[in-house]
Nucleic acid binder design. Structure first.
Length: 104
DNA sequence: CGGCTGACTCTGG
DNA sequence: TCCAGAGCCAGCC
């Protein structure tokens, strides 16, 4: 049975300066779908150690509406993540992968 | 206890 | 490029 806790744990494994997608995290959890990841992040309490800001949609764009979305972009830029003219992140560049976590 | 909504992703037109 | 439908878990009223 998948739990939000499992998703939180995977998100916490995202290294600094890297970003991941809902679908990617879902696959890493296994037997989980992208929606559950989104729901899990939505369930994150304020002040949680989960780098939720390092999680974006498959398009490399921020799906988080409202002010939080703006802050997410700031946090990513603060970590060295670059955004595209369309406000999208180069997943090919900052996209995190368990195999890429060793070196760029 | 019952029903609803919510930070996704993929496919077809 | 935009719209719609399906699959999933948890918190909330």
């Amino acid at each position: 049975m998948i739990r939000h806790q499992e998703i939180h744990d995977v998100v916490m494994t995202i290294p600094h300066g890297r970003v991941s997608t809902y679908g990617a995290v879902a696959r890493r959890v296994g037997g989980c779908t992208a929606r559950l990841v989104g729901y899990a992040l939505s369930s994150l309490p304020t002040g949680s150690r989960v780098p939720w800001h390092r999680v974006v949609n498959a398009q490399g764009r921020i799906s988080l509406p409202g002010e939080a979305g703006q802050r997410q972009r700031e946090l990513l830029e603060s970590e060295g993540v670059a955004f595209d003219d369309a406000g999208a992140i180069d997943l090919d560049r900052h996209g995190w992968s368990a195999a890429s976590s060793q070196s760029a």
